[in-house]
């Protein structure tokens, strides 16, 4: 590539970075505005909105509610996803490709349709809208991501490692828990954090399956519909910081997995 195209591309890259970050930075800034009215310019500054987030018992309880949903659905996804991965990564059998296709299915269904189908299915099963329904929908939606990450990691596990465990007297269960699972650890951390973020940030499924109590994105959405306020900025910023920290941590543990054996 010539020098010019190189410079041009670096400009495009940095423009893209600005495009991604500026709206979020503005949102963070607006949370410091000492006024009820959302809009520029910001003339005086305050921390009250941020303090308010932690004082508002509704926000705090919704926050905890979202966290419980994220953690529970992630644990389910990790268990089921790992189980499916072990089956699919093992010896081939009739119908394996079909199982794989069905495993990936929730990941390719557009969000709204996924939410609607869960809503209808929950009704068929007699599941009330609310926490259980959301956990279930999030767990199903996240399984494909777990399977993709865990299968990629499993593919790099030398067959000799589990054979060595069996050779030394371990049955397949012991071999899985003592050799395979520790080997999968970084993948499980990465996939787990990714699932938590997906669940924590999910709007459409939580919206259609939620009962009386909203999750955090649903709360922000309903507040937005009744008008913008710096309070929302403060809530959104807390979410932003948390997800960014978790995301970076997960990314780093995934990277380490690439390096380690």
């Amino acid at each position: 590539m010539t020098r010019n195209t190189r410079i041009l591309m670096s400009i495009v890259y940095w423009a893209f970075v600005v495009y991604l970050f500026v709206p979020l930075l503005l949102m963070v800034l607006m949370g410091f505005k000492d006024s009820n009215f959302i809009g520029f310019p910001i003339k005086s500054w305050t921390l009250d909105w941020y303090i308010g987030v932690f004082k508002d018992s509704e926000v705090v309880s919704v926050f905890l509610y979202s966290t419980v949903i994220a953690v529970t659905s992630t644990l389910i996804s990790l268990t089921i996803g790992t189980w499916i991965s072990v089956l699919l990564a093992g010896r081939s059998f009739f119908g394996r490709i079909i199982i794989f296709g069905l495993t990936i299915l929730p990941a390719v269904i557009p969000g709204i349709i996924s939410a609607i189908s869960f809503r209808i299915f929950a009704n068929l099963l007699g599941i009330q809208t609310g926490m259980f329904a959301i956990i279930w929908a999030h767990a199903v939606h996240n399984v494909p991501f777990v399977v993709l990450v865990v299968m990629a990691r499993l593919a790099t596990l030398p067959k000799s490692h589990t054979e060595a465990a069996m050779d030394l007297g371990a049955d397949k269960i012991v071999s899985f828990f003592r050799v395979t699972l520790p080997y999968l650890k970084p993948a499980l951390i990465g996939a787990g954090v990714f699932c938590m973020l997906l669940s924590f940030d999910d709007f459409v499924r939580s919206f259609f399956l939620g009962g009386y109590k909203p999750t955090l994105p649903v709360l922000i959405f309903s507040k937005l519909r009744s008008g913008m306020s710096p309070e929302i900025n403060a809530i959104a910023t807390v979410v932003l910081v948390m997800t960014a920290v978790m995301g970076i941590w997960a990314e780093r543990s995934m990277r380490r997995m690439g390096k380690g054996t």
């Binding site: 709206p23 979020l24 949102m27 940030d201 922000i220 937005l224 960014a244 995301g247």
Partner: peptide
């Protein structure tokens, strides 16, 4: 980093912009 922030928060950021 912006990718991990959900649909709602990012949509809101665009509204402010």
């Amino acid at each position: 980093i912006p990718f991990w922030v959900g649909e709602i928060v990012r949509t809101y950021a665009i509204m402010i912009l």
